[in-house]
Design a protein around this nucleic acid. Sequence first.
DNA 1: TAGGCCATCTGGTCCT
DNA 2: AGGACCAGATGGCCTA
Length: 145
Amino acid sequence: MNMDEAAMKILDSWSLPESMFVEAQVSLQSSSSPESSMDSMCSSPEMCFSSGHQDNGDFSFGLSRRSAETSAAHKQRKPKMSTKRRMKASEREKMRMRSLAEALHQLRDYLPPDYSKSGQPLTKIQTLKYTIEYIKNLSDLLSRA
DNA sequence: TAGGCCATCTGGTCCT
DNA sequence: AGGACCAGATGGCCTA
């Protein structure tokens, strides 16, 4: 396989300006002002995004480390959080997940269009997987240069 | 209609 | 004590 071709392919799509970083930071900031932004951005879950779908999910991380702990913990109940504290925690969690989603959306913009051939936007998982692949390709390229 | 994706809520642990 | 993080549950939307 011709390395120059590969290089051109990758580098051609590596055309996002630095301003993307600025934009990213601005939007992250704007989405992190708690009360004000919380429902202006998404008054309901469905309003937020409904991105395209194309599953390919053979994702098997070792994610079950807590199952044993939690089942044990169920037996020894902690006193419940106060409603106020629970609500605050929910808000924070919502913001945290939104900034995560926002970051993923931005990350998606950095991937070459080749990765979304279907014309539909990449899912979160696809974005992560393709990003890994993309970085691998770039590293490979650099190491051979 | 089933299945995938997503946002949100919740209760748990860990850390400061 | 309270914030951050995590994972399971839930319900809505969308597409094949």
